[in-house]
Amino acid sequence: MSIVFSRIDDRLIHGQVMTTWVNLHNVEQIIVLNDRVAQDQTQKSILNMAAPPGIAVKVFPVEKFGQILKKTTITRRTMLLFTNSEDVLLAVKAGVPITELNVGGMRYHEGREKLTKSVAVTESELDAFKELLARNLEVTIQMVPNDERVLLEEVLK
């Protein structure tokens, strides 16, 4: 399995993701797992255009990707990209092998509770994070590699 990095960033593919995380992990392809984005041809086209040359971008519904992995081996160095913790939990339950999760941005807006300056969650997203931690995933909050890694479990104490 060649999943080298898993990240939540509600902006998906943007400058920081491309210039830092992709280079740090020598990523060859980005797989976005989100049911809504998977149905939106315009969004998929934008994601493909936002990726640097040579980086393949694929978008799948979360549970479908779990089914695909049962039949297909990923051979490229792959980054999984999510918009929220609920999708990560769904992916883990579907058999996607994630042991570490980086959380970049989950922006604040009405109805969300701020955990840090860059991460705000709904109640159900918070519950999903707690279940991921209970499943022994290491969840760190870090916008870019030069930032200090903050353990989510410490933030939740």
Rank of each mutant, 00 (worst) to 15 (best):
V88Q: 02
I30K: 02
L47M: 10
L90A: 15
I30H: 12
L47R: 04
L24V: 05
R77P: 08
P61S: 12
G66I: 05
Q41V: 09
L90C: 03
H25G: 05
K64G: 02
L33E: 02
H14C: 01
V88F: 14
V27L: 04
T19D: 07
I8A: 01
R77Y: 07
D9W: 11
F82H: 01
F82A: 03
I46M: 15
M1D: 00
V59K: 00
L81A: 12
K64P: 05
M1C: 02
M18N: 13
I30S: 00
I13S: 11
S6W: 03
N23F: 12
V4K: 15
Q29S: 06
M49Q: 07
F65Y: 13
M49T: 14
E63M: 10
Q39C: 06
L80N: 09
L12Y: 07
A56W: 06
F5E: 12
A38C: 09
L81K: 06
P52W: 07
W21C: 12
A38Y: 04
L90V: 14
M18E: 11
R77H: 05
N23C: 03
T72G: 00
K44Q: 14
I3G: 10
L33H: 07
V17K: 08
E63P: 00
I74T: 11
R36I: 11
R76L: 14
A56G: 02
T19L: 11
T83K: 14
F5P: 00
G15K: 09
M49F: 14
I13W: 08
K71W: 02
L89P: 03
L69Q: 05
M79T: 13
I55W: 04
S6Q: 02
P61W: 03
D87Q: 05
T83V: 02
V59Q: 05
T42W: 00
Q29A: 08
I13D: 03
V17T: 03
T19M: 11
V22C: 11
E86S: 14
L12V: 01
T72A: 04
V88K: 02
D35P: 02
I30Q: 06
L90G: 07
L69T: 01
N26V: 00
S85L: 01
L47A: 02
I31Y: 07
L47I: 10
